[in-house]
Design a binder for these strands. Structure first.
Length: 950
RNA sequence: GCAGGGGUGGCGGAGCUUGGCCAAACGCGCAAGGCUUAGGACCUUGUGCCUUAGGGCUGCGAGAGUUCAAAUCUCUCCCCCUGCACCA
């Protein structure tokens, strides 16, 4: 058994001692590999290995390809999560205590986690340990955290530059909001980590014909205003008269309070619902007068507490009217006016009939089987059908499709002052802040944004994306779509760790926005530290000079007080490493971080320093299931390494699937890797017991396979197709070695050469195991510093490879034939006496190649070289070639005289593969000499088989 | 809803960019044989359907089209996954 732990420890120490990952600019081409810095709120779990391991394997590969590779690591601490943990630990929230326990954080450490900075320190150490254990070749000298004062100076500079360039803007913006804490609420601030979804609605103002006060009817579907029959309010709620954004309205008291967070609201007086129910209101578009009625489903705390009723298109509205009718309420003359039709559905009347049927059924509760849940379902069905195929029947937009009409009518009404925007949470369940308060929507004013909507900025990003290498290739569309869609993005926040926002020091810079150009900081972080540069010396001039490339050394030295030689060193390092960068992250960051990364580089740096390559990987499942805290299937990285070994996990996660597909972390897969590792390990260990001597066919075959493999694997690796590459390098080598040994291969030099190359190629993904094999092979130095093998075309021998393929085809053919003939009546009670393998005559290969060339039976027949062949036999063979058509290619099988001895040698192998007893004779015959009736069937590369029973 | 990705054997998953050599790599599972006191592990073969000899038929979400030829190109429809922002 391979002792993973011992091997890992030995080689991790060897790498550290040799400082192989501590690199400085040199004459080699540069490559800076960066993976998204991990957030310091949890230890790493096995899933993280996918991204960081992929980046590491790529870095190791490129190093072997002759690049000077820097793979650094930083840590993200900005924002609210760390503070949230401190708070939750402080209040003894059992949820967080369980989670920390799941991650193996000792109790005495948990106690100290009431202090945010302590949390970041703890997890930083934890993560470093995990990353070393997983075998990442990181240059730790360049590390920093996003709350490092030196780093903060760069973020400040970044935002001042964005401001100079006109990319910062202020404005109003709706956010999820907790009135208790007075803070914006994101996903991790809510119970059950629910993302508050904000949607835009519109409130259409129906004027009370008596008082002139408005009923602001909240709706998702302003286009149905043409079909309104009445207005609904909640009879049992409290209503008020209030001034909203300049107009006087009736609305529920709860709504008035909530709306005050979105716009100016001044409550004037209370009003009884009985008063409201006496009123009539005028539809602003149709000018019709409609009554106000009680609606059972109207929620007082959503929107305005006033809705318009469109029974033809809304099951709830119809049901409410039916309920009123049943309870004997006086109803207006109902109009059920349809405002749109369903295109391509001649029976669309049926759909509207259904609306009524369901509404009616709910109202009278037929057998209690039709409920409000059915109304919800019906509503959804109607909305989606009408949105997809609805065409307006009435009004200004008659003939338009529903989605366009909806937008256009909303805009017209708002522009005309007949409606206003209302934001609401779209979540089906109520969203509750961790503090217990219900989350509402607030429109934040004077909010600073980064204006990613800037057209010129977008255009240059789009243009640059076309020049970048974006992997996997099918992510290109997602980047393009993101650039099209991305708009203003909040740049500041009231709470959390981080850098103060320069234009509003009360706030901190939003935490995704402060990590868009941080990779450049790696290139000079350790220089700043080595020379003791102080944060206050990192004036804008420093970054102008080093990162932006403007200004002179002397002027920068004068402005900052930093020694000119240090400045020069920083700039040279940045210029060197930024010639070729590869950014690694998970696919889900494409629509935000990765796209913003491109935007910010394009805005702030010289074109030669813009991003060159982004690699986005999919995530990892655990035994087929998503990893999640709730499923309790999260394995901490360090625990995984201890249990399965770093290399096996790396092989499974990095090379278990192509970049864009989910890899499955399973014990079974891990065992599969272990078995093969053992096999390779034994193979290397057994080399001394093999022979030396002249090379035979099977030796040339193995060399050929090796070089074919190197060629294919190199091409795959260049595209980061790890799965394809390691199918060949790892899994394929095991199959080939087995075949080699089964065919009697036993040459120590050949196996040694083969395993040397395989070992080098294993190193990017299985670095510890590769070092161990390298050492066992008696090689000097570290494999991590070796050159990636180059394929030797001269060693690729397609004839030898084809021969082995033919051999397996023969085995398979005999096996089928054996099965078939055993069922023949004539062979009952007999056993196989002899198997003849009959090799095609040489003229057949000549004829085949001639036919492939000429594609003309007559011309081949006339060839002088084939003049000796019996006319009928030749024409039959040619007819067979013709039948194969385009599939037929030149045969590369050797001549009969060379194939025959090779097959002779392979007889034992064939017998072994078929588990034939010693009593069965295998004979290799030439077509020209064979007495078998089946001899004529032999074709180039496909000998005829004759099984003789007796 | 909007956007992006995807639907291939019992399963995971190749192949689809450059249509034909694809019943479909590789692996798992399953079956038979070998080995073994037995089991496990390991090795070999088989694993869509039909077939008394290497052949034939059907097949790649559904339907239609282009083509001599389609898993691969085009269109329509159905289904699944992911993201939708102030949050890392």
């Amino acid at each position: 058994m391979i002792n993973h732990a011992a091997i890992e420890a030995r080689w991790q120490k060897a790498w550290a001692d040799a400082k192989v990952f501590e690199v400085e600019p040199n004459e080699k081409p540069a490559l800076l590999v960066t993976a998204a810095m991990p957030y310091l709120d949890m230890p790493q779990h096995v899933g993280h290995l996918r991204t960081y391991g992929t980046a590491d394997a790529y870095a190791r590969y490129m190093r072997m390809r002759g690049y000077n590779v820097l793979y650094p690591m930083a840590f993200h601490a900005t924002g609210t999560p760390v503070i949230a943990i401190a708070k939750r630990v402080g209040t003894g929230d059992p949820d967080i205590l369980d989670t920390l326990k799941l991650f193996g954080v000792p109790d005495e450490e948990v106690k100290k986690m009431v202090e945010p900075v302590y949390i970041t320190k703890y997890f930083e150490n934890e993560m470093r340990r995990g990353m070393v254990a997983a075998g990442y070749g990181i240059d730790w000298r360049c590390s920093f955290t996003s709350i490092d004062p030196l780093f903060s100076k760069m973020v400040e500079w970044q935002f001042m530059r964005l401001h100079d360039l006109g990319f910062l803007a202020t404005g109003a913006h709706p956010v999820g909001w907790c009135t208790n804490e007075g803070n914006a609420v994101g996903q991790h601030d809510t119970h059950g980590d629910v993302q508050p979804k904000i949607e835009k609605l519109v409130a259409i103002k129906f004027k009370d014909s008596g008082s002139g006060v408005f009923f602001p009817c909240l709706t998702y579907r302003p286009e149905t205003v043409y079909g309104v029959t009445n207005i609904f309010i909640n009879e049992s709620a409290k209503y008020v008269v209030a001034e909203i954004a300049g107009s006087t309205c009736y609305l529920s008291e709860a709504s008035a309070k909530a709306l005050a967070e979105q716009t100016s609201v001044r409550v004037i007086s209370a009003i009884q619902t009985s008063e409201l129910l006496k009123k009539k209101a005028i539809n602003p578009l149709t000018k019709e007068e409609v009554p106000v009625l009680p609606g059972f489903f109207v929620k007082e705390d959503t929107g305005t507490g006033v809705v318009m009723s469109v029974p033809a298109h809304a099951p709830f509205d119809y049901a409410a009217l039916m309920r009123l009718k049943i309870s004997g309420h006086a109803l207006p003359e109902m109009q059920y006016r349809r405002v749109l039709r369903i295109e391509g559905r001649p029976d669309d009347e049926a759909l509207f009939e259904n609306v009524r049927t369901i509404g009616h059924a709910e109202a009278i509760r037929i057998g209690d089987s039709t409920t409000e849940a059915d109304l919800e379902l019906a509503t959804k069905a109607v909305y989606s059908e009408e949105a997809r195929r609805g065409v307006m029947l009435v009004g200004k937009y008659a003939g338009s499709r529903e989605p366009e009409a909806r937008e256009a009518i909303a805009k017209d009404l708002i522009d005309a002052g007949q409606a206003f925007r209302v934001y609401a949470l779209a979540n089906e369940e109520q969203v509750i802040c961790r503090c217990g308060t219900k989350v509402i929507v607030k429109v934040v004013t004077d909010q600073w944004f980064i204006n990613y909507g800037d057209e010129k900025w977008k255009a240059s990003v789009k243009k640059h994306l076309l020049r970048m290498k974006l992997l996997p290739k099918n992510t290109v569309n997602l980047y393009a779509a993101t650039v099209d869609w991305i708009d203003e993005r909040a740049a500041e926040r009231a709470q959390g760790l981080g850098t103060r926002f320069p234009f509003n020091p009360e706030h901190i810079i939003e935490s995704l926005s402060d990590s868009t150009i941080y990779m450049c900081f790696y290139t000079f972080a350790h220089t700043l530290r080595t020379y003791g540069v102080k944060p206050e010396q990192l004036k804008p001039e420093f970054f102008n000079y080093v990162v932006e490339g403007s200004g002179s050394v002397s002027a920068t030295a004068a402005a900052t007080g930093i020694d000119a030689s240090v400045l020069k060193k920083c700039k040279d390092s940045f210029d060197y490493w930024y010639t070729f960068t590869s950014r690694h992250s998970a696919t889900d960051l494409i629509p935000n971080h990765l796209t913003m990364y491109v935007f910010n580089h394009v805005a702030l740096m010289k074109e030669e320093h813009w991003p060159k390559q982004i690699v986005a990987n999919a995530l990892v499942n655990y035994e087929g299931e998503k990893m999640s805290k709730s499923l309790g299937n999260i394995v901490p990285l360090i625990e995984g390494v201890r249990k399965y070994g770093a290399d096996s996990m790396r092989m499974v996660e990095i090379a278990g699937a192509e970049l864009g597909s989910v890899t499955n972390f399973s014990v079974e897969a891990m065992n599969g890797v272990d078995e093969r590792s053992e096999f390779l390990y034994r193979t290397v260990a057994d080399i001394p017991s093999l022979q030396a001597g002249a090379l035979g066919h099977i030796d040339y075959w193995l060399y050929s396979r090796l070089n074919t493999k190197i060629k294919a694997a190199t091409a795959s690796m260049d595209e980061l197709r790890f799965r394809a590459a390691y199918d060949d390098i790892f899994y394929g080598s095991v199959l080939e070695l087995r075949h080699y040994f089964a065919r009697g291969g036993a040459n120590a030099v050949v196996v040694n050469d083969y395993m040397r190359a395989i070992t080098i190629m294993l190193a990017p993904v299985m670095p510890h195991f590769a070092e161990e094999l390298w050492h066992m092979l008696g090689a000097s130095g570290l494999v991590v510093q070796e050159q990636w093998p180059a394929a030797d075309e001269a060693m690729i021998n397609s004839e030898a490879e084809e021969f082995e393929d033919m051999l397996d085809a023969i085995v398979s053919d005999i096996s089928t034939a054996k099965e078939m003939t055993s069922r023949m009546e004539a062979n009952k009670g007999k056993s196989i006496r002899r198997i003849a393998v009959i090799v095609a005559a040489d003229w057949k290969s000549a004829a085949q190649n001639a036919f492939v060339e000429l594609r003309d039976i007559g011309r081949v027949m006339a060839m002088r070289e084939l003049a000796d062949v019996d006319r009928e036999t030749l024409s039959k063979a040619l007819a067979q070639f013709a039948k194969k058509g385009r599939e037929l290619t030149r045969t590369r099988a050797g001549t009969a005289s060379s194939t025959r001895p090779a097959l002779d040698e392979a007889r034992q192998y064939i017998a072994g593969q078929l588990s034939l007893g010693p009593g069965v004779q295998i004979a290799v015959e030439l077509e020209t000499e064979s007495r078998s009736a089946r001899a004529g069937r032999a074709m180039p590369g496909k000998p005829s088989i004759d099984i003789q029973w007796g």
